[in-house]
Nucleic acid binder design. Structure first.
Lengths: 197, 197
DNA sequence: CTCCTTCCCTAACAAGTGTTTGGTAGGTTA
DNA sequence: TAACCTACCAAACACTTGTTAGGGAAGGAG
């Protein structure tokens, strides 16, 4: 068993913040060490490479995310309720793992081409499937409009949710639930006042 | 006057593609040179630094963007029509400058802290002001709902539009105008079928 | 032919990169 | 006291980075 990763987690959180702020490649290990209060070489007592830190950050984030998503999907709610729950969980995840989400958003596209980060592509496929199925179920059930391109809608919804990680600051004036509520209201009802069809 | 920047523009376009695909910091000048069909040192005949290339790419993009936005705003349309025009122009800009938009989206947040790229912050302020004013005018005129947080709505709209640069491929099955139409329909009317208030 | 300009190559540079090695202060265990 | 483990430092390693200097091939102008 791992001894007691107090300090280890502390360093990893620091690394995540720096990665999120400056970008992975632009971040030097000396910069991370500085922020964590030790010297660059000492990082290698806790981790065996810079890449391992990134890997661990992303894996922890995805693991937790899929635990929550899995619970939502297993509940077999109606399409509209599923969408609301997925969106809300996403904003909660941003609240908890802001740095990891920002890193994922910025780096996953080119990282997923490396074999080591192939699981990013896998996760994205599961993600897309869950969302597409929910939207299609909703269209079939009459919960959602039939004249919108489902795939386009999925992309818009997905992007808007996750990009929030770049401006969201925990402890601000909006709670994750409040942001989710406003977002869902916009996406479901639109920003124009209600009219007839 | 500049002689005849045929080759120069070719190299700059190549650099933009590579920057967009791999990220600015992760891109080496040798990689750019490779893709453009010359050697690393030879780049410095056309440009005086890697940073200059990035600068030139971003400036060209922002210049064109503001030319279009300026025309829209000068037309003094109603709030809803202004929003529709801004969104449509944004998707057209993605169609023309896909790489530059992707770079802007990925790098502008930390670039704007460097003095050389301070104009990015300025541009973002103008951008925010134009959008916020349009939304507020719309709320006042009854074009938009009054119960939504204008600032949150602005962020959602802004992000979704620009993030499209990461998945949009010119020559695909959707034209920029078609994407704009679908997006506007979603944002204005919502994805739920029309109901009473 | 010579001169000049355009465009590129070869070869090297200093600075910075991630990483390794050997050592050590301080606490805990025996 | 002695042995051991944890968490770190100091110094160096090989390599890659952006960049520069000097030269040269190709082609048009005189």
């Amino acid at each position: 068993m791992r001894p007691a990763p107090r300090r280890r987690r502390e360093i990893l959180d620091t690394a995540a913040e720096v990665f999120a702020a400056q970008g992975y490649d632009a971040t030097t290990v000396r910069r991370i060490a500085d922020a964590a209060g030790l010297l660059a070489g000492s990082l290698y007592y806790h981790f065996d490479s810079k890449e391992s830190m990134l890997d661990e950050i992303l894996r922890a984030f995805l693991d937790e995310l899929w635990a929550r998503y899995g619970a939502v999907l297993a509940a077999r709610l109606g399409p509209r309720e599923t969408l609301e729950a997925l969106v809300t969980e996403s904003f909660r995840e941003i609240d908890r793992h802001r740095a990891a989400v920002a890193i994922y958003q910025k780096e996953s596209r080119h990282l997923r081409e490396q074999p080591r980060f192939g699981y990013l592509a896998g996760s994205q496929r599961r993600f897309e499937e869950a969302w597409l199925r929910t939207l299609e179920r909703g269209v079939a059930a009459g919960d959602f409009r039939t004249d919108l391109d489902v795939r386009l809608t999925y992309r818009f919804v997905r992007d808007t949710v996750w990009v929030a990680a770049s401006w969201y600051r925990p402890g601000g004036q909006h709670s994750p639930e409040e942001i989710a509520r406003q977002y869902l209201s916009m996406v479901l009802e639109g920003i124009a006042p209600a009219t007839r069809t």
